[in-house]
Structures are given as C-alpha cells and as structure tokens.
Design a binder for these strands. Structure first.
Lengths: 219, 219
DNA sequence: ATCACAACTTTGATTGGTCAAAGTATAGCG
DNA sequence: CGCTATACTTTGACCAATCAAAGTTGTGAT
C-alpha cells in the first residue's frame, strides 16, 4: 500500500496537471506546492516511477500513469468527502476543514469512506463547491466560468472558490462569496483590473482580477 | 507532537499497566503486544524516556510519567469514541472497527474528536462495552466481574469482551455474547474447566475458562 | 553455589523521507 | 555563437523506526 507521502505527491501532481495542463508537470511546481526542496522532489519522482505511478523525464517533468491518476483521484475524493462530513455533520468552520481533511484522507479506509458517502447522501460537491469525484474516479463537471469571464449585469450562482488559504476563504465568506449564494457583476474596469460585485442587498464592492479568477460561477 | 508510533507505544503500555498491574511493565509484554522485536522495544523505551513520557529501568521495565498516562488515555478515548462512531453512525460491523479505529485515532484532531463526542451524545461506553475515558483522562467504571467469578444461576448483563481478535469477536457475537445482552450461568465444571451458559431462549453452550475470563458482566 | 535458560540489551544494518550544498543542462538573450 | 540565469539533478548526510544476531544478566532449579 502506498504511504501517506506517496498519496500526497500523487494528489498534488494530479491537481497541478488538471489546473495548468502542460502535458508534463515540471519539478518546480511539485516541490513548491508540497513545500519540499527540489532535490527531494527529484528523488521522489524516481522512486514513484519505479513503482509505476508516473513517467518521469529528466528536466522535463512528470506525467501520471493510469494507476497514478486513479490514486490521485481517490485522494481528491477522500479529501472532499471528508470536508463535506466535517462541515455538514460536525459543523466545523468552512476555513478550518482543509487541514483536518489533509490528515484524515490518509487514514480512512475505502470501506469507511463509502459508508460516509452514503451517510452524507452521495454529495456531488464539497463545502467549497468543488466537485467530488465518483468512486470510479470521474469528476462530474457543470459548465462553469470564473468571475473573470462572466457576463456583466446577469445574476449568477457562486459555485466554488479555488483557494485553500484560510485568509482568503475568510475574506470571501465575509463578503458573501460562498457556494450557493447569488451574485451580480455590476461592471468591469479593464484599466484598474477590477470587477464590481453586488450580493443580494449588501453594498457593492470590487475585486482584483487575480481574486476574481478564483471564484467559479454558473448560470 | 508525538508520532503515531509514540502514541501507540504509550497507549499499549497504559493498557498493559492497567490490566496486569505489576507496577513496572516488562519489555517482553510491550514488544509482544506491539509485534516488534525486543531490541526495538528497548531502544524505543530509551527515547521515550528521553522525551519524558516514561521512566525506564533496565531489565526491570517501564512506568509512565503523568504526561505519558495522559497521552495514553487520550489515545484510548480516541479509539473508543471512533469505534462508537463507526458502529453507531456508519453501521460498520462490530468485528471490523478495531483496525479502522487503530489508524484513525492517530489522524483525528482534538477539535474533531470533541465534535464527534457531542455528535454521538457523549457516550460512556464503546460498542464492546468498554468505558470511554473523559476528556480529562478519567475512566468511569462500574463494578464488574468476569464470567470466571460470576454467580451461578443468576441473570446478568454482558458488559464487555476483552479480546480484540476478529475471530473471537465473531464467535462471541454468534453465540449472543454481546454487550447489553442478558445471560445466565447454568453451571460450572471445575474439572473440565468450563462454564455452561444460556442466553435468552437459545440453546445452552459451554465456554472454556480462558474464554470465560474475557467476558465482563455486571449485576 | 553453580549453571542454564529466558529475558533483556547492544550492535550494525536497512528503509523511507528529508535537507543543504555542489554540480549540470538548457532556454533565450546579446 | 557563446554565456548566464534559472531550473533541475546529484551527492552525502541525517532521523525515526525497524530487524537480526550476538552479547549480557538475573532467577530458580538442582
């Protein structure tokens, strides 16, 4: 059975390969997002390759094999189901669940996970609005865009927030940018690189485009 | 923070010191019940002593310090609350929860644990009938004896089963020896070393004294 | 009082995961 | 084309946890 470390590397590589697809995921991104030195990442890649989780091309990067992808997906499923449980059942705060799930995802068995899934009513999205992969490792996605390329003046629903940091999550929460909420884009200022938003009847406010990019919306 | 390994050693030593109190817990028992070689146990004891979890006397054995006891108790609390959750909430089988809890107990945070405790309604006993230590590390105990020294002919309630093996637990379950059930000791045969039991209206059966010793009863 | 054996300790080696620091390849500028 | 800066790899070291095998001690039986 793969160690927690292996599980983490694989989940991380899968997420990187999904969000910024360059075919191969470069070492730098991996080392960086796991907080290890690049040497550590390199040597880890070699052993992950030896165990057939991925294909490693020196100075190019890394691509997951199908078993690598499968395990990565399994980890994302675990993570998101656990986050859902922590919020829905135990009432933990939106911003504190990530770190908890990060540990639990390596400890929970397949059996307990599937029971949890049933107990929670087979949820399709975690509390951040991210889709929960199926048991078979498939992400069911609904057509989504970010606040960057949304229509001005139309009402839409917040689907998810693509940021893990407590700081940003708390900010988003305070502003009402939470999955499920309806929001309206009032105007976009391409010179100032901001977008002006209104949520229900609360005051308008604006968001920089780097932040706007993290907010997924639908409708 | 103590590693999962440290947590395991401490929990194990605490349990050994409770069930067979000789003041000092000998190396052999520890190595044996953790399934490591005696050399490993010895070297671990030295480092646990260095970190003030216990006092180690060469060729004598080991006694926990108060912080050692506290951590040990915390692990038992975690384990038993998790077992309760796995049975009560997720409906896992009586016999499969031990191994699951054994892993999860090292991954769950204090915060999540306390939420779980509330969610479960502050249970006092796990599904095996073992008492769950309080947050402060105190075991509330009710007066109990084993089937070894129970009264013949009197009805009593099964309180807990002191065996972790799936095999024995399944056997006990099949026979109806489960916490909460009422049983009656029909007779004891001191020559054959057996005790004859009847549960509700099912057929009588007998139990060897080594097995009888594992069944705690009350009343 | 001696001696054998069981219980324990020591020693030396291994594995997985990590870092720091030194070495190397390559993309792209001049 | 050659050079430099950046991205990557190599090397050597370390730590926690483990084992096997060799060495030591203490207890109890004779």
């Amino acid at each position: 059975m793969p160690s927690a470390t292996v599980e983490n590397y694989l989940k991380c590589i899968l997420m990187l390969s999904m969000e910024c697809d360059h075919g191969e995921v470069p070492m730098g991104l991996i080392a960086n997002s796991l907080g290890v030195t690049s040497g550590t990442a390199t040597s880890m890649m070699k052993s992950l390759q030896k165990e057939k989780w991925l294909k490693y091309k020196s100075r190019k990067g890394v691509t997951l094999t199908s078993s690598g992808k499968k395990l990565g997906m399994r980890m994302i499923r675990r993570h998101r189901l656990l986050e859902t449980f922590l919020v829905e059942t135990l009432g933990l705060d939106w911003s504190e669940i990530h770190d908890e799930a990060e540990v639990l995802e390596h400890a929970i068995s397949e059996k307990v996970l599937e029971r949890l899934d049933v107990f929670l009513g087979n949820p399709r999205h975690d509390p951040h609005g991210h889709p929960i992969p199926t048991k078979a490792g498939i992400i069911r996605k609904s057509p989504q865009k970010t606040l960057l390329d949304c229509d001005i003046g139309k009402k839409m629903k917040v689907v998810s927030i693509f940021d893990q940091s407590t700081e940003f999550l708390n900010f988003a929460k305070k502003k009402g940018l939470m999955p499920g909420n309806m929001i309206k884009a009032i105007s976009r200022d391409n010179l100032a690189d901001t977008i002006e938003l209104q949520i229900e009847k609360t005051p308008k406010f604006s968001l920089g485009l780097t932040s706007a990019e993290k907010i997924l919306v639908s409708g």
